[in-house]
């Protein structure tokens, strides 16, 4: 038919993009992971990855990403819930999203000032008598800033899920004598689980790879998988090892996507 011919024309630029920028890069990362720093074919990178140094780094990266996701969820769920109850909820939602449009680096930079030695946080601590503390370049500051950055991304999908929830379910639960907590636990939360899963996906995967925050806020105290990849590619120029870590990060990503997949 005639349509097939047109489709071919539509397909050309798009297929070119898929091959060049989606498939080829993945293959190249896999290919590079089999080269050592001198450019010889070997599996030394994989052996290195299974040494305690790298395994510990992977685990701690996981742990940080997990904490960041969990805390964001705990803060974001009630926010989304209360937002759906407001008048003009779309406008309030927009105001929640606006900070996420401010350049991430500017927000990180703001916290360099806020948590800094002479910043307002330390001023406050001094004032209530605790005294100046080193806040910047700690695990705390890293998690705090990461949560700050991810909250809007967690709120958005949960808000959408709650917004689509038909109020008649809640009415039904109330009529059947369920307490407010029971309504939440048995009706509202299960029905908005898809939004929660999407939110966790949006937060957890980038949280594994935030290298700019670890550099700016955690002062190299926290090393995530992303930091390690950046380090290997742009500092030590050991692309093979960087590619190997990238392979594992992609694997983790796929496993996480399947675990939180909506169809499963």
């Amino acid at each position: 038919m005639h349509n097939k011919h047109i489709r071919r024309i539509y397909m050309i630029p798009y297929a070119l993009w898929i091959t060049l920028f989606v498939i080829t890069p993945i293959i190249l990362v896999g290919y590079y992971s089999f080269f050592d720093i001198e450019g010889n074919l070997s599996i030394v990178n994989y052996q290195k990855f299974f040494t305690p140094v790298y395994l510990k780094m992977t685990l701690s990266s996981f742990w940080y990403a997990f904490l960041i996701t969990l805390i964001s969820l705990i803060i974001a769920y009630p926010t989304a819930f209360f937002l759906t109850k407001t008048k003009h909820k779309q406008l309030w939602l927009l105001l929640i999203i606006v900070p996420s449009w401010v350049n991430l680096l500017l927000k990180a930079y703001a916290f360099i000032g806020i948590f800094g030695k002479y910043g307002p946080t330390n001023y406050f601590l001094e004032w209530i008598g605790i005294g100046t503390k080193q806040i910047l370049f700690t695990d705390f500051s890293f998690i705090f800033v990461a949560v700050y950055i991810f909250i809007p991304f967690m709120i958005l999908p949960i808000f959408n899920a709650l917004n689509e929830l038909s109020p008649s379910f809640i009415d039904a639960a109330n009529d059947l004598g369920a307490s407010r907590w029971a309504t939440f636990r048995r009706v509202i939360f299960p029905l908005t689980l898809d939004g929660v899963k999407t939110g966790c996906q949006i937060v957890f995967i980038p949280a594994l790879s935030l290298f700019m925050l670890t550099r700016l806020i955690a002062g190299n105290r926290v090393i995530t998988l992303g930091t390690a990849i950046e380090q290997h590619f742009l500092v030590t120029q050991d692309w093979g090892m960087g590619a190997t870590i990238a392979v594992f990060l992609m694997l983790i990503m796929f496993i996480f996507m399947i675990l939180t997949g909506k169809d499963v």
Partner: peptide, 23 residues
């Protein structure tokens, strides 16, 4: 096609950056 389309949407930025650098 949609899954291929979404690969770059879900990949972490570092991986996109590193793989494009190689490319």
């Amino acid at each position: 096609l949609l899954s291929l389309n979404n690969v770059l949407m879900v990949s972490p930025d570092v991986i996109i950056g590193a793989s494009f650098l190689i490319l």
